[in-house]
Amino acid sequence: MLPQILDGLSWALLLVGSGFTIISGIGLFRMPEFFTRTHAAGMTDSMAAIMILGGLLLQAPDWMVAVRLIAIAAFLALTSPTASHALAQAALADGLKPLLGGQQGKG
């Protein structure tokens, strides 16, 4: 009984993670400008990646594979916010102005 539950859970994680991945890809086109696009991109980095890796983790044949999956998830969780932050800061330092609430529609 337990293996089936774990299997179902892992498939659910993979499916939902894939869904979030595609939505963030769509977000890259639906968002009006760079900073809001970063939000859509950051969404996958923190959520979909961990979901897909978690789904794989439940299918891991031995602990060596599990350790690697956890290490990848940890690296992504540590580096992706840093990369987003560096991107946004560099864009601002370069004079790119974020689009603010009232100015929608023009972008």
Binding site: F20, I23, S24, I26, G27, R30, M31, P32, F35, T36, H39, A40, M43, P98, L99, L100, G101, Q104, G105
Partner: peptide
């Protein structure tokens, strides 16, 4: 955020 992405610009108010 997923909801906002799918609803598009109407759900955005960047600050």
């Amino acid at each position: 955020v997923t909801r906002r992405v799918l609803r598009g610009r109407g759900a955005l108010h960047p600050a």
